[in-house]
Nucleic acid binder design. Structure first.
Length: 549
DNA sequence: GTAGGGTTAG
């Protein structure tokens, strides 16, 4: 403050302003501006707004109040606060602010006004609003500015309006790397990799963005070979370049390449660590994921929400109760926003899969709103740990809350019923799936319902469900029905079912053995012999329990 | 005399 008092000229206030790092600093300089009667100093207020914007998105309102005290804001001021709104507020807020600006008789929009406004539209793919802005751009005569043009190419490209994007691009008088890159993004967006690559090869200058965009385009389309070729050609790779390809390898399941590139990467940022951890978790190597996570901690890299979600998924898969407890504790201590549904759902899922059902239930109930994902995590947790009745009750509650179950939700509830022989409930949900939610059951759903009916001895009902379906898709369900026929000694249905199974999987010894057992159980020894002869004729050998290890 | 804009990754 002593330093502030001694400063008298506007330029020293300006440099003080530039050195502000926190809201507290800003407030102090703000007080100084007021005391010195500089509230109408356009340069100072412009800088103030810009600093507000860079310190935190939350300070847009603060910037607005300072702006509102300026009697005749000039174009710099309007444009600067418009930019704040465009980067942090909703598109509607930004457009409303722009309307206020248009009504002000002191200023006219210029070429600096529009790029951020177009970006506000492109961010939310608001094509209609973007087109209106494009009209204004022409009206104000700013369409030949390279920044304005690039923003329009970006808007149309991101909205999939490739013809309009190209039209703007072709009509521009000056194009730079950003213009070309935006055009390439447009072609990649509609999946035209050939045209994208053509532009990439044609463009006079490339920067790091252009390379990364093109590499990412190949990665997204699954063409990791082309991505790698470009990667190896690229002169000055950035962190993003490594991140993109490491993540591409990890998502495609090629953890060997992902790991090797990660090890080559000169620095490792949070995105690379996250890609590797998530890759191991998604590819069934939870232990490896945890190892990488520990390695990351030991290098003092702070995990973020992406990393924590992957780590929770790994803990859930590994069923590692101790690890789950530690992760839970870590989450409660760190600054990650635990209110987000996908994080809460992952947390519930982790505890449920690790068998800590009470903790899962507590977290589940504490969620402000429960979505389908978190319900399913909780229901599945109850089901696999033997609480089918609670699982059914929770499923009912989910329906009562008005959530719409999908295929996966029905698989979970039918399998819960099937594990606990809840026949009536299972039949009810199966019926509900078809008639109330208009979902045609898939293989897994048929397998659950048939095994459920079969174990309950309701063989005819199971048969009636299956007989109308294309057999090839449901061999498993037919097999489970045959098993039920053996358990309940139904010879005639067993013969019928086995006959069908022999047609679609003639080499599966288990079906012959089951039929032969069915005959044997009712003392039809000549039929037993017939089945054995059939097996011999077809050269099928009964598989003995064996292990390759 | 002094100020401002557009393109990439999980």
């Amino acid at each position: 403050m002593t330093m502030m008092r001694s400063s008298s000229s506007s330029s020293s206030t300006l440099s003080l302003l530039k050195s502000c790092k926190t809201l507290r600093n800003l407030e102090q300089v703000h007080a100084l501006i007021i005391r010195k009667g500089s509230e109408q100093d356009h340069v100072l207020v412009t800088e103030f707004i810009s600093i507000c914007n860079s310190i935190s998105p939350k300070h847009v309102t603060y910037a607005s109040t300072v702006f509102d005290r300026v009697l005749q804001p000039n174009i710099y001021l309007w444009n600067n606060l418009l930019k704040c709104h465009c980067t942090h507020s909703s598109m509607a807020t930004s457009i409303n602010f722009f309307k206020r600006m248009k009504q002000s008789c002191y200023v006219a929009a210029d070429k600096y006004t529009f790029p951020s406004l177009v970006k506000a539209c492109s961010r939310v793919l608001a094509l209609r609003e973007g087109q209106v802005v494009h009209g204004l751009i022409v009206k104000y005569g700013t369409e030949f500015d390279v920044f304005v043009g690039s923003s329009l190419v970006d808007l149309y490209g991101k909205c999939g309006e490739i013809v309009n994007a190209r039209k703007v691009f072709d009509e521009m008088l000056v194009r730079n790397e950003v213009t070309w890159t935006s055009m390439i993004v447009g072609y990649l967006k509609i999946g035209d990799h050939l045209e994208a690559k053509k532009l990439f090869d044609e463009m006079p200058q490339r920067n790091v963005f252009s390379w990364n965009v093109m590499i990412n385009g190949f990665v997204k389309s699954g063409d990791l070979v082309s991505a790698r070729v470009l990667f190896d050609e690229m002169p000055d790779k950035s962190m993003v370049t490594f991140d993109t390809l490491i993540d591409g390898y990890a998502k495609s399941g090629d953890m060997v390449s992902a790991r090797s590139l990660f090890d080559q990467s000169p620095e490792k940022d949070i995105v690379s660590w996250s890609a590797l951890i998530s890759g191991y978790a998604q590819n069934g190597q939870p232990k490896e994921a945890v190892k990488v996570f520990n390695d990351m901690l030991s290098r003092n890299v702070k995990p973020d929400e992406y990393v924590m979600v992957s780590l929770m998924s790994a803990s859930a898969q590994a069923g590692d109760w101790e690890l789950a407890k530690w992760v839970d504790y870590y989450l409660s201590e760190c600054s990650i926003d635990l209110g987000q549904n996908h994080i809460a759902a992952a947390r519930v899922d982790m505890h449920a899969k690790c068998g800590n059902l009470e903790r899962a239930a507590t977290l589940f109930e504490k969620m402000p709103t429960r979505d389908l994902i978190s319900y399913c995590s909780m229901i599945q947790g109850l089901s696999v740990h033997g609480h089918a009745v609670r699982a059914v009750a929770l499923f009912q509650r989910m329906l009562a809350e008005g959530l719409t179950p999908d295929y996966a939700a029905f698989t979970i509830i039918l399998s819960a019923c099937s594990h606990a022989d809840l026949v009536d409930e299972g039949c009810h949900f199966f019926d509900c799936m078809i008639n109330e939610y208009s979902l045609a059951p898939l293989t897994d759903h048929y397998a659950c319902i048939v095994s459920l009916l079969g174990r309950a001895g309701r063989l005819k009902e199971a048969y009636d469900i299956l007989k109308e379906l294309p057999m090839e898709l449901h061999a498993g369900a037919w097999g489970s029905l045959l098993w039920a026929c053996r358990v309940h000694g139904d010879v005639s249905l067993g013969k019928e079912v086995a006959g069908r199974l022999f047609k679609i999987e003639p080499q599966n010894a288990a079906n012959y053995v089951l039929l032969s057992d069915i005959y044997a159980a009712s003392n039809q020894w000549s039929d037993v012999n017939d089945v054995r002869n059939q097996m011999n004729e077809k050269g099928i050998r009964k598989l003995r329990g064996c292990s390759w290890l």
